[in-house]
Design a protein around this nucleic acid. Structure first.
Length: 920
RNA sequence: GCCGAAGUGGCGGAAUGGUAGACGCGCUGGAUUCAAAAUCCUGUAUGGGCAACUGUGUGAGGGUUCGAGUCCCUCCUUCGGUACCA
């Protein structure tokens, strides 16, 4: 009986599917554990070997936790709304729902091939009306809430309304008032439209006219995190700023809580840091400058109020609203010319020419609030309208950009730092003392910052201010393939649909093209848009992150038609204990999920504030591309080593046409018509390809389909090999070089049970040596699985099987214990061997074995130790035999002996040849 | 520029501050075979030596330590993220 992975895996796949072996239900008698993968977007190209890396890791962990007695929730679904399906629809006219369903079927079959233990009864598709009904419902909850800064939480908008009716704004703090001041009487006199307009400034999802990232090529608005260097993340099209009426999520209200919440999360420092940077909290002061010959004042935000005596000019953003009023007649023409110049430049041009300095004087002067100095007011595009107040006080001695600007326009650079030469560059460090700064002279910078703020507050020219880089998140997309907004407009005022009208299903359209006037395809459907008498529907749809911002909650109770998930279910399954996915979602999905979770928590729908307790980012598996070298102007291809003798062009060739680096010439000729008559210059009778590590992509012909690997080696080998490749979090190129080793390991394991033709196991007392290797393995596998170091686990399995083979161990108990711990990694072969070796009971219910220390150590002594007041002490056996090491060891021993006199011994374990750890 | 992570054999990679290079690939030589595949055994960082043995070695240079791949400082390189954010 040979090891035949294909038939074994088919068998167990069927058995587990038919018996719904991985179905999970609430079980209060067991502790729960929730393991989640970032669900995939079902693209048309299917999975390549890079995708399952994280899924395999989470699957191993889920099975491991299950074997340890946890009730494990391990679901999978599809993030099915999105741009590519719609783009494909525009090209082919096929409904996105159709192509999405086809793609999902393909994904599903690829996933099934790898033998995951998902509870498919809990599958979710974000494009399913039964699902997006609740996306729309949550949107309405967000819409119907406002953020109470005094309580630090979201509250129903109805409570605010009640306050307005009873007491106007008088019981609201300044921060909660959002600039509104009115008595209750006035509120009652407001027209409905006026009331709605006011409430809109409070709602957590709101409509606003704002500069948005508009992508002409895609015909839609994009969120900040979907724009990279002025180009769209998807497709790389240019993005411009455009003013449009859009839906936004008031995520900035949650900035502080999103920042604080990071502290308790078990995420990588890199990931937390990315979120912190994105939120971009800066503590500083807002300072009010009066303007010469004007009633107006200019507020600036600065993190360095201490440097105010070094402010030699002021810079406003070119879009600053005060410009029209303060610009002098002489400068008017020049300022307008500059504004025009800035306006015509796209975001991309601005970013590309970051280092060039442009600007223009307004003719106006401001007064330094502390010493009354006249400060010229300039404008420049390096000051952004969207950050802070859109105005800065420029301190060339303390800020490099201000310094360069001063140098370019010959503005003074006052020295304000003791012993610092600012003739060549600014001094931005926050240490040292100030000079030429009045009452701050000789004061250390951190102290001076405080003193400056205090002074500004005292003379009512400034206040402490915390500024965030993060803006509110755009929530409208002028697209078809997304969730429709449950909103209608009457006379331009938005009103939510009733909950009973949900889901608002996507209507059928004839064309998926944008309507052309800045609205999405839905705007072309007159019947649908005007379905409700006297009202108009919202024509945009929600962005891709809407459905994925809460899907982890739905898995807890996926078929509930009464609510998005019952409280009982979310209370039981609670937070995701382990979340595995790529780093590309660092600021998008992961931030929005945290926001939605916090809002739902504030509104009392769930009882936790953070969705993902522990996050692990698997590394990307990169592709290993192959190149052939065509001699220029011919259809002749030259082998790698000889290519430098010719003028050649490298061409990507499909990795599937190569065995290692060698090209299968016949397959290559058959690949494309144009290569049919190709000729080759070979080296040693072979055509050797060039190679390069690149991102895995269909376009580069370097993708490898997991189906092919599974077909050739089996799913168990595939799973083990992906884990064996290297540390989970590290990026690594796909390379099949080593897969044979893993395959050999499984064959060897098989032969332990089935050495010849029949199975041969003994029930006798296991040898000590076998028990030692088994328990060493149990310990290593348990500890390394716990810290998700799966590559070392695989190594340990290999060592174990090698040693058991060498000692010809055929003890049933030893081998079956081995199967239990191998199970999460290679479930099929483990189940099969469990069965043919007469394993007791359901294999999936087998309990994870504990290691027994008596097999791990060959010596035991009983001493407890503490030296120098520490509770832990290290004693080393003299691994190094130099005089100094021996001396230290002797000294430590002496102290141990001394301590022993008069203390009660406790057990301590000694590993010969290694060191011992003695813990009290 | 700033923020993170990482630099170890021919390759992928192991090493709670304690014998660096586990495990796998590749390569050596051998067993088995008519032969091959498969399987098993040997060796495999590097310099010197027939050998026992010995010198040197974890990007570079300093430091802490009885002891550093691991901790600290400076620098170099690579990879990720991010940027006129005041």
């Amino acid at each position: 009986m040979e090891y035949n992975p294909q038939s074994i895996e088919k068998k167990w796949n069927r058995i587990w599917r038919d018996s719904k072996a991985f179905r999970t239900d609430i079980d209060l008698s067991k502790p729960k554990y929730y393991v989640l993968d970032m669900f995939p977007y079902p693209s048309g190209t299917g999975l390549h070997v890079g995708h399952p890396l994280g899924y395999i890791a989470s699957d191993i962990f889920a099975r491991y936790k299950r074997a340890q007695g946890f009730n494990v929730l391990h679901p999978m679904g599809f993030d099915a709304f999105g741009l590519p399906a719609e783009q494909y629809a525009i090209e082919t006219g096929q409904h996105p729902a159709t192509t999405t369903a086809t793609n999902i079927a393909k994904f599903r079959s690829q996933l099934d091939n790898i033998g995951f233990c998902y509870d498919w009864d809990r599958e979710i598709r974000t494009s399913d009306p039964a699902y997006y009904k609740w996306t729309q419902w949550i949107f309405l909850q967000i819409y119907n809430s406002w953020y109470d800064h005094d309580l630090g939480k979201a509250r129903p908008i109805s409570e605010l309304l009640e306050m307005f009716e009873n007491s106007g704004t008088q019981n609201l703090s300044e921060q909660n008032r959002r600039g509104y001041i009115f008595p209750p009487l006035t509120w009652s006199e407001y027209l409905v439209e006026e009331k709605e307009k006011c409430l809109m400034d409070f709602r957590l999802s709101y409509l606003a006219e704002a500069e948005v990232n508009w992508c002409e090529a895609l015909g839609t608005v994009l969120a900040n995190d979907e724009v990279i260097n002025g180009l769209s993340e998807r497709g790389g099209h240019p993005v411009i700023k455009k003013r449009m009426r859009q839906w936004f999520l008031r995520i900035t209200d949650y900035a502080d809580r999103l920042l604080e919440g990071l502290q308790q999360l078990d995420w990588s420092d890199a990931m937390k840091e990315m979120q912190r940077n994105w939120i971009g909290k800066s503590v500083g002061a807002e300072v009010k400058f009066s303007i010469v010959d004007s009633e107006d004042t200019i507020d600036v935000f600065t993190t360095r109020p201490d440097t105010i005596f070094g402010a030699s000019f002021m810079v406003l953003a070119p879009e600053h609203e005060l410009l029209a009023k303060i610009t002098t007649a002489e400068q008017k023409a020049e300022v307008e010319k500059y504004q025009e110049f800035v306006q015509t430049r796209s975001e991309r041009e601005r970013l590309a020419e970051v280092k060039s300095i442009t600007g223009c004087f307004t003719g106006a002067y401001a007064l330094n609030p502390l010493n009354g100095a006249r400060i010229p007011i300039w404008i420049s595009e390096y000051v952004l309208a969207g950050y802070g107040t859109g105005a800065i006080m420029a301190v060339p001695a303390g800020d490099q950009r201000d310094f360069l600007f001063a140098r370019k326009f010959n503005l003074p650079v006052p020295a304000i730092f003791e012993g610092v030469d600012v003739s060549e560059e600014a001094y931005a460090a926050k240490s040292g003392k100030l000079i030429n700064s009045d009452f701050l002279n000789g004061v250390e910078i951190p102290k001076a910052i405080e003193m400056a703020v205090d002074k500004l507050v005292a003379i009512e020219a400034g206040k402490k201010k915390i500024q965030f880089r993060m803006r509110d998140a755009g929530f409208s997309r002028q697209r078809y393939w997304g969730e429709p907004f449950p909103i209608i407009y009457k006379n331009g005022t938005p009103y939510p649909l009733s909950e009973n009208d949900l889901p608002l299903e996507l209507p059928v359209v004839d064309s998926y093209n944008p309507s052309g006037d800045g609205e999405g395809p839905l705007a072309t459907l007159d019947n649908w848009m005007n379905e409700i008498a006297g009202a108009k529907r919202e024509s945009s749809t929600m962005p891709g992150y809407a459905g994925s911002s809460w899907y982890f909650l739905r898995y807890a109770d996926p078929n509930n038609s009464e609510t998005f998930a019952s409280k009982q279910a979310t209370d039981y399954w609670n937070q995701v204990d382990l979340y595995i996915g790529g780093t590309e979602h660092a600021v998008g999905h992961l931030l929005y999920s945290r926001l939605w979770t916090k809002i739902l928590y504030d509104l009392g729908y769930i009882s936790f504030q953070e969705p993902f307790k522990k996050l692990v980012n698997q590394g990307m598996i990169t592709g290993n591309s192959r190149f052939v070298y065509r001699v220029n102007g011919t259809n002749e291809f030259v082998s790698f080593a000889l290519k430098d003798k010719y003028e050649t062009t490298p061409i990507h060739v499909d990795v599937a046409l190569c065995e290692g680096l060698e090209l299968d010439i016949n397959a290559f000729k058959a690949w494309r018509a144009e290569y049919h008559d190709a000729t080759f210059i070979l080296e040693e009778g072979k055509y050797v390809c060039g190679s390069q590590v690149e991102k895995m992509s269909k376009r580069l012909f370097n993708t490898v389909n997991p189906d092919d690997v599974v077909q050739k080696y089996g799913a168990d080998t595939f799973r083990l090999y992906e884990m064996f490749l290297g540390p989970l979090e590290q990026s690594k190129p796909w390379d099949t070089q080593g897969i044979e080793g893993v395959s050999r390991f499984l064959k060897k394991l098989w032969r332990l049970f089935v050495p010849q033709v029949t199975i041969d196991l003994s029930d006798g007392e296991p040898e000590l040596a076998a028990m030692q290797i088994l328990h060493k393995t149990i310990r290593k596998v348990t500890e390394d699985t716990e810290r998700m170091s799966f590559n070392t686990v695989v190594s340990q399995f290999m060592i174990c099987v090698n040693e058991l083979s060498a000692m010809k161990c055929n003890n049933r108990q030893v081998l079956q214990d081995l199967l239990v711990i191998l199970g999460p990694f290679a479930p099929n072969i483990s189940a099969e061997l469990w069965e043919i070796s007469g394993g007791k009971g359901d294999y999936l219910a087998a309990k994870w074995p504990a290691w027994d220390e008596k097999y791990l150590f060959s010596a035991e002594i009983s001493i407890p130790v503490a030296i120098n007041g520490k509770t832990r002490v290290q004693l080393s056996f003299p691994a190094q035999t130099d005089a100094k090491s021996m001396e230290t060891t002797a000294l430590a021993n002496e102290q141990v002996q001394k301590w022993l006199e008069g203390n009660t011994p406790k057990k301590v374990i000694v590993v010969p040849g290694r060191m011992i750890n003695i813990v009290l």
